[in-house]
Simulated scan of single mutants.
Amino acid sequence: MKVKFRKYSWQLAPGHIRDIREQVFIQEQDVPPELEWDDTDEIADHYLAVMPDNTPVGVARLFGTLGETAHIGRMAILPDFRDQGIGEALLRHVMTDAASSHDQIMLSAQEYAIPFYQRSGFHVCSDLYDDAGIPHADMRCLSPDMVIKALAERRNPQVLGRDDQSWLFSDEHDMISLMDSVAGQARQRIWLYDRFLEHDLYDRFRFRELVSSLARRHRQSEVRLLIHDDKPLVKRRHRLVELMRRLPSKIELRLASEDYPAEEQPFLLADREGVVYRHDFYNPQGFAKFADGGRVKLLSERFQRMWDTGRTSLELRELPL
């Protein structure tokens, strides 16, 4: 079904936007009016979905924070126009706008709608919580530009445990996006193997926050960093090293033994499903997969053998906090 989309500021938005939100959220879902209307409306872009005859059928809003994060919210489709693909088309239109200037998109999803957002590349990143008496979960898309290009061919793109297709990368930007998307969905463990913790790849605020979030999630959380060379970490401060020294029971670093056969390809493993695999240490070329239990099992066994023969870094242990 062909749907058109129009974008407005709140000051110039037609009354249809307010009417649809009032009908869906306030009347249908019993959201208190004082919670529905907030100051964010003033800074957001507002989208109106209309049929070919200009009948208004759906709304959404978009605003940005912190320079790199976009937030989608207040998505609503009128009852008579649901289950026709309009909501999905509206979401992807807003995602495309957001991806032009943001590296990450966040939203708060009602529990029943989580599968709807997963089909467009969002994954759950919080526990359930109550918002206006309705169970919600935070969801995010960490590589929206790549996801949008793939939406025509893939369902559940980049969702851990659901997307079993390969994502190829041949440059650092795509590699970092995929690495963050894989690592950001780990709920129990991240195992990372590389020559060293290259600052451009691993000493980034977002990657540090993803690792920190996992490490603090629960008692079984585990982050293992296995490298060959710790000299760059001694010479220059590194976010992961500082985090490791604050959370020593959750994050551990070892140096691979020179006497034990080592892998020639670096990789990152998330839980028992996700993998980012490079063809060598020196080039940003390889692939990521979000549902490849067989490969992750094989690489985990190789990682474990190198880990068991590795040693801790005395130099890093002696660094001041």
Rank of each mutant, 00 (worst) to 15 (best):
248 P>S: 06
303 F>P: 15
313 S>N: 06
160 L>G: 07
98 A>P: 02
107 L>I: 04
190 I>A: 03
261 P>L: 03
128 L>Q: 15
187 R>N: 10
134 I>W: 00
120 S>D: 01
193 Y>S: 13
80 D>T: 15
218 H>Q: 04
190 I>D: 03
67 G>P: 12
242 E>D: 05
256 A>H: 03
88 E>S: 14
304 Q>H: 15
33 P>V: 14
117 Y>T: 09
249 S>K: 07
121 G>A: 08
12 L>Q: 15
317 R>G: 15
128 L>Y: 13
215 A>F: 00
184 G>I: 08
199 H>L: 06
245 R>Q: 03
280 D>Y: 05
99 A>H: 07
108 S>M: 11
245 R>D: 04
256 A>K: 07
93 H>N: 13
255 L>E: 09
149 K>P: 03
102 H>F: 08
273 E>W: 03
8 Y>E: 04
70 A>L: 06
71 H>S: 06
34 E>W: 07
315 E>H: 11
250 K>G: 06
297 K>F: 14
56 P>Q: 07
62 L>R: 09
223 V>C: 01
125 C>E: 01
26 I>E: 15
132 A>T: 02
316 L>F: 14
283 N>Q: 13
30 D>I: 12
22 E>M: 15
89 A>S: 08
235 K>E: 07
129 Y>S: 11
219 R>Q: 03
61 R>C: 10
21 R>W: 08
74 R>V: 03
67 G>H: 09
280 D>L: 02
82 R>H: 11
285 Q>Y: 11
179 M>I: 09
270 A>K: 04
171 D>W: 02
3 V>N: 06
259 D>H: 11
38 D>N: 08
124 V>R: 04
101 S>Q: 07
151 L>H: 13
260 Y>G: 00
222 E>N: 14
13 A>Y: 01
97 D>K: 11
223 V>M: 06
238 H>D: 00
120 S>Q: 02
276 V>Y: 02
65 T>K: 11
85 G>F: 01
90 L>P: 06
67 G>E: 05
127 D>M: 06
33 P>R: 12
190 I>R: 02
24 V>D: 13
257 S>M: 04
90 L>S: 11
119 R>W: 03
23 Q>S: 15
130 D>Q: 14
109 A>K: 05
44 A>D: 03
269 L>Q: 00
239 R>H: 02
21 R>I: 10
310 G>R: 06
138 D>T: 09
167 W>C: 02
66 L>D: 12
94 V>S: 14
215 A>H: 00
211 V>T: 10
37 W>F: 12
230 D>K: 03
227 I>D: 05
224 R>E: 05
89 A>P: 02
129 Y>D: 08
22 E>Y: 15
166 S>P: 07
113 A>M: 07
89 A>L: 02
304 Q>F: 10
168 L>N: 09
280 D>A: 10
148 I>F: 04
118 Q>R: 10
165 Q>I: 01
238 H>E: 00
254 R>P: 11
195 R>K: 13
164 D>F: 05
273 E>I: 02
